[in-house]
Amino acid sequence: MTVDPHVLARARARVLGVVSADASAPVPSGLTGASDGTRVWLLPQWPDGATPALLEEYDTAPMPLDRPGQQRRVLAAALRCCWTNLDDAPWPGGEAPVIDVLEVYAGMSRGGADLARRWATGELRRLSDTGWLLLDETAGTVRPGPRVALWREESLASLRDLLRRLPQPVREDAPHE
């Protein structure tokens, strides 16, 4: 039995989430590719006008989050650190130290900073699992994930305004001038 490679690629993307391939690999129909030059991430492509209810019906919610408020704040903190030139597109963005993201998040949170950092670490992992961020725990860095590449330019104005209001990362171990 042979399986159409395009059908197989769509099934993999649905089961495994965001998968990457070599940038020279063709992007199957029904998927869209988000490339950073060396890799291409395959993401489901939905017709314009697909409502959240329709996506939910197909088990492909656009932002599958367990704790949406907290995860959105962690995503915003990561973007604050990784998307340094807000006039540019957020994808592919740049790498930022995870510790900077944790500090920005702790600055946005109420309560104990240590608890906020622990919560944010778990949320970074979940956001990485769903393709919103690319987390390299070994290197201690994070950057925007391929799902960010799907944001339309006309939808970014309010996000840019929000990120401008977030605090800059300031670490206690940073050298003081």
Rank of each mutant, 00 (worst) to 15 (best):
M1V: 08
T2Y: 14
V3Q: 14
V3P: 09
V3L: 15
D4L: 10
D4C: 14
P5E: 06
H6L: 09
H6N: 14
V7W: 12
L8Q: 11
A9S: 13
A9W: 06
R10T: 08
R10Y: 04
A11N: 08
A11H: 12
A11Q: 14
G17P: 13
G17K: 02
G17F: 06
A21F: 00
D22C: 11
D22I: 05
D22W: 07
A23E: 13
A23W: 12
S24H: 13
S24K: 08
S24Y: 00
A25R: 15
A25F: 10
G30Q: 04
L31S: 11
L31W: 08
G33L: 07
G33P: 14
A34T: 04
G37F: 06
V40H: 11
L43R: 03
P47Q: 12
P47G: 07
G49P: 14
G49F: 08
G49M: 06
P52T: 03
L54E: 15
P62N: 00
P62D: 03
M63Y: 09
P64Y: 01
L65R: 05
D66N: 09
G69Y: 12
G69Q: 14
G69K: 14
R72P: 10
R72M: 08
A78G: 05
R80E: 03
R80W: 00
C82Q: 04
C82K: 05
N85Q: 11
D87S: 09
D88W: 03
D88Q: 15
P90F: 05
P90L: 01
P90K: 03
W91P: 06
P92G: 04
G93E: 11
G94M: 07
E95S: 11
E95I: 02
A96I: 02
P97Q: 15
P97R: 15
V98I: 10
V98E: 02
I99Q: 11
D100M: 06
D100G: 08
V101T: 11
L102Y: 04
L102H: 05
V104M: 03
V104H: 09
V104R: 04
Y105T: 01
Y105C: 02
A106Y: 07
A106K: 15
G107W: 03
M108F: 01
M108T: 01
G111Q: 14
A113Q: 13
A113F: 04
A113C: 04
A116W: 00
W119R: 04
A120I: 01
E123C: 03
L124E: 01
R125D: 06
R126P: 04
L127Y: 07
D129M: 07
L133P: 05
L134M: 06
L135T: 09
T138L: 13
A139H: 06
T141V: 06
V142L: 03
R143F: 02
R143V: 01
V148E: 04
V148T: 15
R152I: 03
R152Y: 03
E154Y: 12
S155W: 09
S155V: 02
S155C: 01
L156I: 01
A157F: 07
A157H: 13
S158R: 12
S158F: 01
S158H: 09
L159I: 07
R160V: 12
R160M: 02
L162P: 00
L162D: 00
L163V: 04
P169G: 04
P169M: 00
E172H: 10
E177R: 12
E177P: 15
